[in-house]
Design a protein around this nucleic acid. Structure first.
Lengths: 226, 226
DNA sequence: TCTTAATGTTACAGAAATATTACAAATTAA
DNA sequence: TTAATTTGTAATATTTCTGTAACATTAAGA
């Protein structure tokens, strides 16, 4: 799935054309013909990108935009604004109010598609920034959450640190001593076998629904993340 | 004007490169090669964002960071930390001491630029927005009112500031120390356990009519708004 | 195959962290 | 000033986590 796109645009012909073409490209698309309703539906739909007409019957594009940026669930939702020729003034206002890109009507679908790809690509890195990812395993250091294939996994503090440690250098094998030194607070004395128990707990937590084992035992050496 | 950016970094070549590119992008940039002086100049300059090297000749990045977060004029200044490869340990500390994002040297300017935009956009609402919204929770900073699903909720001053703080960066986990530093007036000494009690009061107030819990306890780390 | 060392598994008691409650002091409103 | 509200803390209850020991299983060489 390439992503979900929401369209707010009052010209039905444009909506139809764009929606059809985007769906053909593999996007999931939903749309609304006016601002107020659009805002509500959009928040239910949770798109990855919004195509927003600047001249709507009820709300102005700016109002829609501001509303979205105020809502913390959507404040980083990429927005491409659709503007009629000659609305240069508005373009500037648009960019100032947090729009990511704009395109002037009439536009070709190819042009729009290119912009969408660019904006989606640009907006990607911010998602990655604080996340450690390995295969279908994701650990968010800021939110302190762990996911396996998008299912959230509950970990105790030690298991969290342990997994964080493995994720920094996947595939690398660490001895029990190395693990102890890094994962446990300094000056703490714990039995080396204690690590085995925590490894077991971590394994149990992240090996959900029969997914493949992610922690490898290297006999006489230690453990590694696959 | 896109914004003002201050750089504290001791490698002159990096400063020069980044400063030049940022200025070309339309930012106003100023910089310093060491921590102590940097702190002074920064406070005069009043930037919208700080790029902070983690290994400085005089002060550590953590010290600079703490100093900034203690100063009520700058405690919400977004900070992106520049770290050398392999300083993973420090990254963790950095994120815990209130840094917004980090980037590992060497980095491309495009990468940095993307991070800057993301952080600036994320941090934008906290300066401007009168209303902070998260799911069915709404806090009006001007009218000092809080609503859950359109029902007004009465909060004491401390609970109000606490909720406001959480709403600025929902989902992010904050330690008790970070909460204390930001939510309580400077130089006030309160027991760290006191926060638990205020969390309890806040929870009790906003969890109306059996709606779902909105404050998450992250054992050994702190609390977050879901 | 047998032996042995290494690792896996389990259960549990204490420890640590957090939740809850009550109350007195401090602050604010009336 | 009195009454009402808000705050911080300490004491207690509850929950969750940790480390260890005891026993089970596995792998690899003799």
């Amino acid at each position: 799935m390439k992503g979900k796109i929401f369209i707010i645009e009052d010209e039905a012909s444009i909506v139809q054309l764009v929606q059809h073409n985007l769906e053909k490209e593999g996007f999931i698309v939903s749309s609304s013909l006016n601002g107020n309703e659009g805002l509500k539906e959009l928040k239910k739909f949770e798109p990855n990108l919004l195509l927003l007409d600047w001249m709507l019957p009820d709300l102005s594009g700016i109002d829609v935009c501001k509303n979205i940026r105020r809502d913390s669930n959507f404040k980083s939702l990429p927005i491409i604004m659709l503007t009629a020729k000659g609305e240069e003034e508005d373009k500037i206002k648009g960019l100032e109010s947090g729009v990511d890109d704009y395109i002037t009507k009439p536009f070709s679908f190819n042009e729009l598609h290119a912009r969408i790809k660019a904006v989606l690509r640009r907006s990607d890195p911010k998602v990655v920034a604080n996340e450690l990812i390995y295969e279908d395993l994701k650990l968010d250091r800021i939110e302190k959450r762990v996911f396996r294939s998008d299912n959230e996994i509950q970990l105790g503090p030690t298991e969290f640190r342990l997994l964080e440690f493995f994720l920094i250098n996947p595939k690398r094998v660490y001895s029990r001593d190395q693990i102890l030194e890094t994962v446990w607070p300094n000056n703490v004395n714990v039995e080396s076998r204690t690590i085995d128990v925590h490894i077991r707990r971590l394994r149990q937590s992240i090996n959900i629904e029969g997914k493949k084992e992610l922690i490898r035992t290297v006999r006489s050496s230690g453990y590694s993340l696959i």
